[in-house]
Protein backbone atom coordinates (compact mmCIF):
# COMPACT_ATOMS: atom_id res chain seq x y z
CA UNK A 1 0.00 0.00 0.00
CA UNK A 2 1.32 3.45 -0.84
CA UNK A 3 1.61 5.82 2.09
CA UNK A 4 2.82 9.38 2.46
CA UNK A 5 3.82 11.00 5.72
CA UNK A 6 5.88 13.96 6.77
CA UNK A 7 8.92 12.80 8.73
CA UNK A 8 10.85 15.62 10.39
CA UNK A 9 9.35 18.08 7.94
CA UNK A 10 10.18 16.09 4.80
CA UNK A 11 7.49 14.29 2.85
CA UNK A 12 8.14 10.57 2.46
CA UNK A 13 6.20 8.36 0.11
CA UNK A 14 6.70 4.62 0.03
CA UNK A 15 4.99 1.40 -0.86
CA UNK A 16 4.77 -0.67 2.32
CA UNK A 17 3.27 -3.94 3.41
CA UNK A 18 0.35 -3.17 5.77
CA UNK A 19 2.06 -5.17 8.52
CA UNK A 20 5.13 -2.90 8.52
CA UNK A 21 5.53 -1.36 11.95
CA UNK A 22 6.22 2.37 12.05
CA UNK A 23 9.54 1.79 13.90
CA UNK A 24 10.81 -0.43 11.07
CA UNK A 25 9.52 1.97 8.43
CA UNK A 26 11.44 4.85 10.03
CA UNK A 27 14.63 2.84 10.49
CA UNK A 28 14.73 0.78 7.33
CA UNK A 29 12.73 2.64 4.71
CA UNK A 30 13.43 6.24 5.70
CA UNK A 31 16.87 5.36 7.11
CA UNK A 32 16.50 7.17 10.41
CA UNK A 33 18.07 4.82 12.92
CA UNK A 34 17.89 7.18 15.90
CA UNK A 35 14.60 5.55 16.88
CA UNK A 36 15.71 2.48 18.81
CA UNK A 37 13.84 -0.76 19.27
CA UNK A 38 14.32 -2.15 22.75
CA UNK A 39 11.61 -4.57 23.82
CA UNK A 40 9.46 -4.59 20.69
CA UNK A 41 6.48 -5.22 23.01
CA UNK A 42 5.43 -1.64 23.87
CA UNK A 43 7.00 -1.78 27.32
CA UNK A 44 10.31 0.11 27.19
CA UNK A 45 9.61 3.32 25.27
CA UNK A 46 12.93 3.29 23.36
CA UNK A 47 10.95 3.59 20.12
CA UNK A 48 9.02 6.71 21.21
CA UNK A 49 8.40 9.24 18.45
CA UNK A 50 5.76 11.94 17.96
CA UNK A 51 2.73 11.48 15.75
CA UNK A 52 1.05 14.82 15.13
CA UNK A 53 2.90 16.22 18.12
CA UNK A 54 2.06 13.49 20.65
CA UNK A 55 4.37 10.80 21.96
CA UNK A 56 3.67 7.27 20.76
CA UNK A 57 5.49 3.95 20.70
CA UNK A 58 6.41 3.25 17.10
CA UNK A 59 6.77 -0.50 17.71
CA UNK A 60 3.03 -0.62 18.39
CA UNK A 61 1.83 1.41 15.41
CA UNK A 62 1.56 0.33 11.82
CA UNK A 63 3.17 2.61 9.28
CA UNK A 64 -0.19 2.69 7.49
CA UNK A 65 -1.79 4.13 10.65
CA UNK A 66 0.54 7.13 10.34
CA UNK A 67 -0.30 7.64 6.66
CA UNK A 68 -0.95 11.36 6.17
CA UNK A 69 0.41 12.24 9.62
CA UNK A 70 3.32 14.37 10.70
CA UNK A 71 5.96 12.28 12.45
CA UNK A 72 8.93 13.61 14.42
CA UNK A 73 11.87 11.44 15.41
CA UNK A 74 14.89 12.27 17.55
CA UNK A 75 16.69 13.39 14.37
CA UNK A 76 14.06 16.08 13.86
CA UNK A 77 14.55 17.88 17.16
CA UNK A 78 17.81 19.76 16.65
CA UNK A 79 17.93 22.89 14.55
CA UNK A 80 21.01 22.26 12.39
CA UNK A 81 23.94 22.05 14.78
CA UNK A 82 21.94 23.59 17.62
CA UNK A 83 20.59 20.99 19.95
CA UNK A 84 17.02 21.10 21.13
CA UNK A 85 16.87 22.42 24.72
CA UNK A 86 15.85 18.97 25.93
CA UNK A 87 18.87 17.37 24.27
CA UNK A 88 21.11 19.99 25.83
CA UNK A 89 19.51 19.48 29.23
CA UNK A 90 20.23 15.73 29.00
CA UNK A 91 23.83 16.46 28.03
CA UNK A 92 24.38 19.01 30.77
CA UNK A 93 22.74 16.96 33.51
CA UNK A 94 24.23 13.58 32.62
CA UNK A 95 20.78 12.29 31.69
CA UNK A 96 22.30 9.39 29.79
CA UNK A 97 24.91 6.69 30.16
CA UNK A 98 24.81 4.03 27.43
CA UNK A 99 22.30 6.15 25.51
CA UNK A 100 20.05 3.36 24.34
CA UNK A 101 16.92 4.67 26.01
CA UNK A 102 17.81 8.30 25.30
CA UNK A 103 16.06 8.99 21.97
CA UNK A 104 12.79 7.64 23.39
CA UNK A 105 13.32 9.37 26.73
CA UNK A 106 13.93 12.72 25.05
CA UNK A 107 10.91 12.36 22.77
CA UNK A 108 8.69 11.38 25.70
CA UNK A 109 10.06 14.28 27.74
CA UNK A 110 9.41 16.84 25.00
CA UNK A 111 5.82 15.61 24.67
CA UNK A 112 5.46 15.74 28.46
CA UNK A 113 6.55 19.40 28.62
CA UNK A 114 4.27 20.28 25.70
CA UNK A 115 1.35 19.04 27.77
CA UNK A 116 2.59 20.22 31.15
CA UNK A 117 5.23 22.97 30.84
CA UNK A 118 5.88 23.23 34.59
CA UNK A 119 5.76 19.72 36.00
CA UNK A 120 6.65 18.74 39.53
CA UNK A 121 9.28 16.07 40.04
CA UNK A 122 6.49 13.55 40.69
CA UNK A 123 4.76 14.54 37.44
CA UNK A 124 8.00 14.05 35.51
CA UNK A 125 8.44 10.59 37.02
CA UNK A 126 4.84 9.64 36.17
CA UNK A 127 5.10 11.23 32.74
CA UNK A 128 8.08 9.03 31.90
CA UNK A 129 6.54 5.83 33.29
CA UNK A 130 6.43 4.33 29.80
CA UNK A 131 10.20 4.63 29.33
CA UNK A 132 12.70 2.28 30.90
CA UNK A 133 16.38 3.02 31.51
CA UNK A 134 18.75 0.29 32.68
CA UNK A 135 21.66 2.63 33.43
CA UNK A 136 20.93 5.92 35.10
CA UNK A 137 18.53 5.01 37.88
CA UNK A 138 16.36 7.79 36.39
CA UNK A 139 17.63 10.42 38.80
CA UNK A 140 19.56 12.46 36.23
CA UNK A 141 16.87 11.97 33.61
CA UNK A 142 14.32 13.57 35.91
CA UNK A 143 16.84 16.30 36.71
CA UNK A 144 17.37 16.95 32.97
CA UNK A 145 13.65 17.31 32.28
CA UNK A 146 13.18 19.65 35.23
CA UNK A 147 16.18 21.70 34.08
CA UNK A 148 14.71 22.00 30.60
CA UNK A 149 11.34 23.04 32.02
CA UNK A 150 13.05 25.74 34.05
CA UNK A 151 14.59 27.35 30.95
CA UNK A 152 12.93 30.58 29.85
CA UNK A 153 11.10 29.07 26.86
CA UNK A 154 11.10 25.46 27.96
CA UNK A 155 11.09 22.58 25.55
CA UNK A 156 9.48 24.34 22.65
CA UNK A 157 12.17 26.98 22.29
Amino acid sequence: MEITMTVNGIEQTADVEPRTLLAYFLRETVGLTGTNIGCDTSSCGACTIHVDGESAKSCTLLAVQADGCSVTTIEGLANGDTMHPMQRAFQENHGLQCGYCTPGMVMAAVSLLDENPNPTEQEVRLGLEGNLCRCTGYHNIVKSVLACAAEPFGATK
Partner: peptide, 9 residues
Protein backbone atom coordinates in the same frame (compact mmCIF):
# COMPACT_ATOMS: atom_id res chain seq x y z
CA UNK B 1 -4.16 3.34 31.92
CA UNK B 2 -0.68 2.26 30.82
CA UNK B 3 1.57 5.25 30.19
CA UNK B 4 1.25 8.55 28.28
CA UNK B 5 2.22 6.98 24.95
CA UNK B 6 -0.48 4.33 25.36
CA UNK B 7 -3.04 6.95 26.42
CA UNK B 8 -2.30 9.03 23.32
CA UNK B 9 -3.38 6.14 21.07
Amino acid sequence: VGDPQVRHR
